[in-house]
Every structure is written in structure tokens, then in C-alpha cells.
């Protein structure tokens, strides 16, 4: 197997505060290979976006990477600062955020935003950049690309705007794209268009994609592998089909079973009791033990379980606990 594009090892993010330090990302490791889509799921506060922001170097102070390593194409990037990081980020990592309106500059025509990005990061002439901008808009399926170069972001609809953002993320030909809830603000029919576009681009260009979302349906359709996060830790990591249909971690099982889709024809939805713990009160041992129906003494007292031979960070992984 070839080397992964992105490799995260034991990544830990800390936020120091007046009342002590909290740890929104705690010892997370995963790889993404070229042409692969890794889905990162979890509920709000699970640390999925925080891990993505750590990779791209966009942690807001006082949050900082307190441990672990991030490797991009064989280069260690977690210690890069300032200008070096900025160059690398623009060139090698593309980012797609949830809200397309706030990630485009409302005062610049989209053509200008595209060419500016390319001129900064690629060694090409202005004319060439403009030609590529048209090609980029065309590739993401914007009709009449050449005319739309002079349009401002507000002249596009939500779905078209998200396409522009994707074109922008891809125009410097990055090897990794981080898509943080790219379809959450969009309607179902437009969501299907964007997902299919992401998959097509990933397949054709061999770009590695980190797809961060809370929507299991989107993950099932788009991702090759999926990482499930809980309270800043990785709960389960594996091929999408295994994780969704036959989860090993009780949290994953609860999560999948509580979607209305999995309970078709049942009067009540499956319920996980309680709520995700606050970051300053993560339980001892396995973070999920107070809500886990299978928790035993070992889960409460031993140090937290590591990812073992099964895909799950659990002392007693489930076997044959089918959801669908």
C-alpha cells in the first residue's frame, strides 16, 4: 500500500483556561489514503471539527496541539508556524466549510477569488489562472462558467455557492480536502448533488477527503471508511459497511440505532440514556461507561481502552450486534 496522504498520530488538543485545562481531542490517530474519503462522525462536542482544524492549523487560541504528530505527504506539519504553514495550507489542503456564504468574500467576484488563490500558490500567469478558473467552475457543474466569473457570491443560490467553495478549495490542486459539514445547510436534493460531486472529484483526482458530518446517511453513501468520535476520543474506526451495519463499539451501536431510519416500523426510537459528558467532567476509564448498557467494573476503573484488533476502542466489543 502506498503511503497515506494524511497521517495523524495520537493527536491531542488542549484548551487551557482559568479553571483548568480541557482536552477536546484526546489521542486520536487515523490515516487517509489518496482517493479515499474518510468520514468523521460524532455528536456536537465530540471533537470532530477540532481535529480537522488542528490539521489545517486553524485552532483558535488558546487551543493548541499539546501532543501527537500530523504528517502530510511525508512532511510533519504540526509544528509549522506562520508563513510556512500558510503556504502549505493553501497549496496542499483545501477546506470546505458548512456555510458557503461566510466562506466567500462578498465584495469580490468569484473569478477574482479563484485567480487570487491560484496566483498565490501556483506558478502560473494571470491569463492561465483565468483559464483554469473557468475550467474549475465548469468542473463543479456551474452552467455558463465563463460568464459567472464576474458574478458576486450573493448572485448564486446556496447549492451553487457551495460548488464555488468546492472549486475554490480544489483550484490549487491540494492533495487533501477537509469538508466540515459541507451539506448541512443545504436541501436534500442539493445535498445529493454536492455529495456526488465530492465523490467524483475525489475519484478522478485522487484527492484525499476528510468528510466531517453528523449525518449517518451522508457517511454511508459517501465515505469509504468512517471514524466515530466520542468525547474527544476515537470510539471506532473501520470500513463504512462494517461500522454501520455491524458496529463493535456500544456507542456506535446506540448512535446508529437511534436514527429514525434504523427503527422503521418500531413505535419508539432506540435511546442512549444521558448526554455527552462536558469536557471538564469526562468520566474515568472509558468515557462512555456511564451511558453504556454493557459497562462492567473494568470499564469504570481501568485506564481507557485502546483501539485493538477489533475496530473499536472498547474492552468488550460487540459481536454480531446488527443494526439494519
Amino acid at each position: 500500500m502506498t503511503d497515506p496522504v494524511l497521517s495523524i498520530r495520537n493527536l491531542t488538543v488542549d484548551i487551557p483556561g482559568r479553571y483548568g485545562t480541557v482536552r477536546p481531542v484526546d489521542g486520536v490517530s487515523y490515516d487517509i489514503a489518496a482517493g479515499e474519503i474518510l468520514g468523521v462522525v460524532g455528536e456536537s462536542g465530540a471533537g470532530k471539527s477540532m481535529a480537522g482544524n488542528a490539521v489545517i492549523g486553524l485552532l483558535n487560541r488558546p487551543a493548541f496541539i499539546s501532543g501527537g504528530e500530523i504528517w502530510l505527504n511525508g512532511q510533519r506539519i504540526d509544528q509549522l508556524r506562520g508563513d510556512t504553514m500558510r503556504r502549505l495550507r493553501g497549496k496542499q489542503i483545501g477546506m470546505v466549510f458548512q456555510d458557503p456564504l461566510t466562506s466567500l468574500n462578498p465584495l469580490l467576484q468569484v473569478g477574482e477569488q479563484l485567480t487570487e488563490t491560484m496566483l498565490t500558490h501556483l506558478d502560473i500567469s494571470k491569463a492561465e489562472a483565468e483559464k483554469r478558473a473557468v475550467a474549475a467552475l465548469d468542473e463543479v457543474g456551474i452552467p455558463g462558467a465563463a460568464e459567472r466569473l464576474n458574478s458576486y457570491p450573493h448572485e448564486f443560490s446556496g447549492g451553487m455557492r457551495q460548488r464555488v467553495v468546492i472549486a475554490l478549495a480544489l483550484c490549487a490542486e491540494p492533495s487533501l480536502v477537509i469538508a466540515d459539514e459541507p451539506t448541512t445547510a443545504l436541501d436534500v436534493s442539493v445535498q445529493a448533488q454536492i455529495i456526488s460531486l465530492l465523490r467524483k472529484l475525489c475519484r478522478e483526482r485522487g484527492t484525499a477527503v476528510m468528510l466531517i458530518t453528523h449525518d449517518m446517511g451522508v457517511i454511508a453513501e459517501a465515505a469509504d471508511r468512517v471514524a466515530v468520535m466520542y468525547a474527544g476520543r476515537l470510539a471506532e474506526l473501520g470500513p463504512v459497511r462494517d461500522v454501520i451495519t455491524d458496529p463493535s463499539h456500544p456507542y456506535t451501536h446506540g448512535l446508529m440505532a437511534s436514527t429514525p431510519l434504523a427503527s422503521r416500523g418500531k413505535a419508539r426510537l432506540h435511546q442512549i440514556p444521558g448526554a455527552m459528558p462536558r469536557l471538564d467532567a469526562i468520566p474515568e476509564g472509558c468515557a462512555f461507561n456511564p451511558r453504556c448498557p454493557h459497562a462492567r467494573d473494568k470499564c469504570r476503573h481501568d485506564p481507557r481502552p485502546e483501539m485493538g484488533a477489533s475496530n473499536a476502542a472498547c474492552w468488550f466489543p460487540l459481536v454480531g450486534a446488527e443494526v439494519l
Binding site: 436534500v188 436534493s189 445529493a192 449517518m216 446517511g217 463504512v240 431510519l261
Partner: peptide
């Protein structure tokens, strides 16, 4: 029919959806 077809499914692994044309 279009709406139901486009909605993501939990069992839709690698499903190739023909995305709906156009927007509202």
C-alpha cells in the same frame, strides 16, 4: 419520488445516485 431517491440512506453504501437536476 425525486426527494425520496435523493435522501441519503444508511444502507446506501457507495450508492450512485443520479443527482436531481436543477434547484427550486
Amino acid at each position: 419520488q425525486m426527494l425520496l431517491e435523493a435522501a441519503p440512506r444508511m444502507d446506501g453504501f457507495g450508492r450512485e445516485v443520479v443527482p436531481p437536476e436543477g434547484e427550486i
